[in-house]
Structures are given as structure tokens and as C-alpha cells.
């Protein structure tokens, strides 16, 4: 396969990096830790939620674990999906760029015949 042009490689690398960032964020979000106000909870802890109207709600560790475990696959799927799209696009760019460069190379070689003979 012909080597793609530098611009294609730079563009594809940028897309791949963005894709990897999404994967990394997804990996960090999949810790399985139950949190309350960003802090890790342990079994037996209770989380107090205060609404804007001052209403207080208490959540047990089990309740929050069930809620956050249900939300996690959606978040992971979304982040992983977007990351995967970026990586796929990067691969597509590299393949298309290689094909185009192969065609260019064939034209350059074809021109050599009449450039030398002329």
C-alpha cells in the first residue's frame, strides 16, 4: 500500500488521538465506584441530596449503586461509540489517502516516459 501524504497522516493522527481520548475517558468512567457529590461511598454510607427548594432526600449506598450502574453502560457506550467513530474515520482517511497516492505515483511514472523521450 502506498504511503499517504503528510497532510493525510497528520489529519488521521489528530482524529485517532481524539478517538483515544474518548476511550480513555470511558475507561476512567467505568471504575464501578459509587459516588456521592463526586466522593466515593462505601457500603453503609448515606448520601443526602438537597433540592433547590430545600427538600432533603436520603439515598442509601445500594440505591445509588443501582442507579449509577444502570447509567454507566449508556455513558460507556456513548463515549466508546464516539471514540470508535473517530478511530474508524482516521483509518478511512489513511486508506483513502494511500489509494490516492498510489494513483498519483502511477501518473508520475507515466509522465517519466514522455519527459525523458521528449
Amino acid at each position: 500500500m502506498a504511503k499517504p501524504k503528510a497532510g493525510v497522516v497528520i489529519g488521521a493522527s489528530a482524529l485517532a488521538v481524539i478517538g483515544v481520548v474518548f476511550f480513555v475517558v470511558a475507561a476512567f468512567s467505568s471504575g464501578g465506584e459509587v459516588t456521592c457529590d463526586g466522593k466515593a461511598m462505601r457500603p453503609g454510607d448515606v448520601c443526602l441530596e438537597v433540592a433547590k427548594d430545600g427538600r432533603k432526600t436520603y439515598h442509601t449506598y445500594a440505591e445509588l449503586k443501582a442507579e449509577q450502574d444502570a447509567r454507566r453502560p449508556i455513558l460507556l457506550g456513548a463515549l466508546g461509540g464516539v471514540g470508535g467513530l473517530f478511530v474508524l474515520a482516521a483509518g478511512g482517511f489513511v486508506v483513502a489517502g494511500s489509494r490516492e497516492n498510489k494513483k498519483d505515483q502511477a501518473q508520475i511514472e507515466a509522465a517519466a516516459a514522455w519527459m525523458r523521450a521528449g
Binding site: Q107, A113, W114, A117, G118
Partner: peptide, 13 residues
């Protein structure tokens, strides 16, 4: 150069 090559009967792509 292209015309010289073509005039010798060669097609040019």
C-alpha cells in the same frame, strides 16, 4: 516534450 513523444505515434496518459 509531450508533443515530440506524441508525434512519434505514442499515446500520452
Amino acid at each position: 516534450k509531450a508533443m515530440a513523444y506524441f508525434d512519434k505515434g505514442n499515446p500520452i496518459t
